[in-house]
Design a protein around this nucleic acid. Structure first.
Lengths: 184, 184
DNA sequence: TGTACATCAGTGAACGCGCGTTCACTGATGTAC
DNA sequence: TGTACATCAGTGAACGCGCGTTCACTGATGTAC
């Protein structure tokens, strides 16, 4: 049956929200179209009213989550202290334990390489984050700020990937703490 | 038909070699059992004469590649210069472009989190690499060496993940070069 | 404002496909005597 | 040393299953008059 336009738009967004959460939690190949649709409260059929294919959803969900993340980071750029705090929170066990709502790069960076449709939005997102960090994190020397940002982001993503992969809570916390200590 | 024992053992190892290469190239879910067996020159049937399941192969291939990698790193630990050279080579476009024969952590770190059977060997491997780096990389202060190693490894893994994910050759090289410059 | 009808997002059964896995069979190897 | 036979890694067809995707159908919404 036919539904009000507003409802349709809202469902479209709910698919994006659930997809970007589930993809981050289980990986692109670890989630099925049916699971995503179930999470939005619909059956799997109408998925193709909203997206051309699972591949198209992957790309769209990266774009959606990237945009949301950039907005979130922007709320911290008023003060250098808030930027430092953002990085400290990033490298916390709480973030490690909630990949679904956490950093896109740490959660899906490794899979983006094999999913061509997602690379464009992912790259654009990374460029945006580098720029914000370069401009607003309290770096000692302006001319080295971009390099410093890239080094910091690499550490953050690598630390999160390793902290999540490891089966020893002790080692996992050690990784987070050692990298955290470099940025405060 | 029956085959000589030596041939069987050799085939077993060939499966491990091809699996660890293909898994690193395409991810655990991006490779099928048939593709792995085809790469060894056999049909897919006898796979189950060698391994209990694909999951068991994933675990075994991590163990195999980890052991090979630790041996390779060991050849560099005679001199501090060789250790520095190892890290510089790690952060090269050549390594970026050959994930199949490259670093296990950069290639599969993100997926290990969702593949429980692989975590034990992966963690053991990471501990080994941290130890070697702590002891043999020319760090300025011995009491900070372990923390420095963890920070360096996080940077290396994060940089490789991002350099591989990005669709801009320029940004990819910038990431590698900026992180490289921190360790020479 | 009220009526008739076209629209279209949702339903849920069904499709083809490729996956991981199984199995009856083959035949050279390795062993018993 | 020669012969008879049990072993078992490999073959390749087949299995069940769940995936991404399609489609005939439904019925409230939105529109034309």
């Amino acid at each position: 049956m036919r539904y009000p336009k507003s409802e349709t738009a809202e469902k479209h967004q709910r698919i994006l929200i659930e997809a970007s959460r589930l993809f981050r939690e289980k990986g692109f190949n670890g989630v099925t179209v049916s699971q995503i649709m179930e999470a939005t409260g619909l059956t799997h059929g109408p998925f193709y009213n909203h997206f051309k294919s699972k591949d198209a959803l992957m790309a769209a969900s990266i774009e959606y989550a990237a945009s949301a993340s950039l907005q979130e980071i922007a709320t911290h750029k008023e003060s250098p202290e808030a930027m430092v705090e953002y990085v400290q929170q990033f490298l916390s066990p709480a973030h490690r334990d909630s990949p679904g709502t956490g950093c896109l790069m740490s959660a899906l960076g490794g899979e983006v390489r094999n999913e061509l449709s997602t690379q464009k939005h992912f790259s654009h997102y990374l460029m945006g984050v580098i720029e914000v960090m370069t401009r607003h994190f309290p770096w000692p020397a302006e001319e080295k700020a971009r390099g410093d940002s890239i080094r910091m982001l690499s550490s953050m993503v690598g630390a999160m990937v390793l902290a999540r992969a490891v089966d020893s809570e002790e080692l996992s916390q050690e990784i987070l703490e050692e990298v955290r200590s470099a940025f405060r």
